[in-house]
Design a binder for these strands. Structure first.
Lengths: 245, 245
DNA sequence: TCAATGTAAATGTCCGGACAATCGAACTAC
DNA sequence: GTAGTTCGATTGTCCGGACATTTACATTGA
């Protein structure tokens, strides 16, 4: 079961990255079976004409992804699958699209308003200063699935209603050159108010899943504050966690 | 603003780890202010009498934690705070305890039952084979907060009722030498059934927050399957996410 | 038979160096 | 004045080697 590995030194893609991609692909389609040893690093480096640090860097990136486990004195093993995709800062739009649901978005509100105390605190701007306010209804298969209310600091990005209906907010922000770094989320539940019930085609008091999120870019600026409500019959949060060693 | 850094070569603690801990501490109590440059790696290595790879390893671990950001051609900056603790595979017990809530646990059921189809699929064992079943009521300030129903494969750990009431399940598993690796979680919401309402002192149909989780050790074995229900007025999921670059 | 010891194998840590790629700012040319 | 260019600074990638630490397994001893 000799694994076919090779690197292209003329490629601009880093060698360790080439190797980690090939290993990940081999794990993905079963060429490397769960539980099997990867072979020692020194011999692997020699076989590929690479140095050991480079091979280690490739392996380490897969360990960080949870695909491999290192055991000193034993070797590096392929994790017994189950790991699919660790939790990432995901957009509902992308999630639905990759699930093949062909999401639709209806922009209800797209305007500029003075920041309330709550919004000002979340975004770190002065109270009553101007912020963007967006309200969107997200549908899948023609059925309402979530109501998304977002606030953005001014002068960050141009928010075109047509673009908002064609794609997700995160994709627009990334396209505008904003480097998303981290987010603080709170997931809870509560009964629907009359207004919420009407927007989501539920009964008053029906259980709703709620999520609040503040997203920061890599300079630490808050770039988005969102309050979302989901119909629990149509959506739940699913994710994989890795234990940090 | 010369930062005081030093390493102890006689210590068994790895040098890169000593350095990363000192840097983290400096960030924590403000000796390194957000947005400030860390100083270039080469000079830092020279000042500490370390090699550049060692310094890079220390910095990288903090980048992975979201505390630092590297910019090629610019330098390494301290992230403008906001990052407190990224999401980890946490136990409700530990969460409550670190929040100073002095959690209490009442074990309702602690027995061995044949695995249902659902439990067997989650744990990867044969249907009708023996599995542990635990049901616990978790209270804070004397008020019910969550109802926890867990299943564990047999012969994995001895489940003493007294221990279960004194600490959390994860802590017991770690103490038993089980290396937790990853978990697959689903968070949703639904209306309380009559039985759930009674257990949690809520009304029938009241919104409940639900979480299902399968936890795996580093060999890929499923070591726990849990179905939890939370009172949304008493508990919500709060966590910080990092964008994987 | 069982426990202690020794040995080989593998990853963990660390070094010192080299060159490439990128960013920002100063500088130059128009 | 503005746009393009050069240049210094800094991180990114990669090398080859050295020794330490841990683990599993075989060997030895009681």
């Amino acid at each position: 079961m000799e694994l076919e590995l090779s690197v292209d030194r003329s490629s601009p893609v880093p060698l360790y990255f080439q190797l980690s991609q090939q290993l990940e692909a081999a794990i993905e389609h079963g060429a490397l079976t769960p539980g099997s040893l990867l072979g020692n690093e020194i011999e692997l480096a020699a076989r590929l004409g690479l140095s050991r640090p480079t091979v280690r860097q490739a392996i380490q990136s897969l360990v960080d992804k949870g695909l491999l486990v290192r055991r000193r004195g034993v070797g590096t093993q392929v994790v017994h699958s189950q790991v699919k995709r660790p939790l990432e800062l995901s957009s509902l739009y992308d999630d639905l699209e990759s699930a093949g649901q062909r999401p639709a978005t209806k922009v209800i509100v797209n305007t500029v308003v003075p920041a309330s105390a709550e919004v000002a605190a979340a975004l770190g701007v002065a109270e009553d200063s101007d912020v963007h306010r967006i309200e969107r209804l997200r549908l899948a298969h023609g059925e309402p699935m979530a109501y998304l209310c977002n606030f953005l600091p001014p002068a960050l990005i141009d928010l075109d209603t047509a673009q908002l209906e064609a794609t997700g907010l995160y994709r627009l922000m990334r396209a505008a050159g904003i480097t998303l770094h981290s987010a603080r989320q709170t997931i809870g539940a509560r009964g629907a108010t009359v207004a919420e019930a009407e927007r989501l085609a539920e009964e008053e008091g029906a259980p709703l899943l709620t999520m609040q999120r503040v997203t920061f870019d890599d300079t630490g600026r808050a770039v988005e504050y969102g309050t979302h409500t989901y119909r629990p019959s149509r959506y739940s949060f699913e994710f994989q966690l890795l234990v940090r060693p």
